[in-house]
Amino acid sequence: MPITPEEVLKIANLARLQIKQDEVEQYAIDLSSIINLVEQMNAVDTKDIQPMAHPLDATQRLREDKVTENNQRDKFQAVAPSAEKGLYLVPKVIE
């Protein structure tokens, strides 16, 4: 199942990755070969096998519903690119 250059651009856009135009072709080839490798598994009969959700054979531990975190806003905002009036600032987003 080959990946087309258009798909490379679409995936890059969805993942917000900037890629150079002259590299698109090579990405398409590389990604196609990865997909082909994975494709080989389609030959295996997996009818009675439960899909693996996690490589560890363990189940999720649950925590008690207690508030354990205190306010550390000043520390977090000290390393943020931009903050004002307690809010994190980002470039204007218009819907």
């Binding site: 931009s82 994190y88 600032l89 980002v90 987003v93």
Partner: peptide
Amino acid sequence: KSLHEEFSDSTGIDL
């Protein structure tokens, strides 16, 4: 939450 009104050229984010 995104606050679009608060600032003129930025969006404020309350997490």
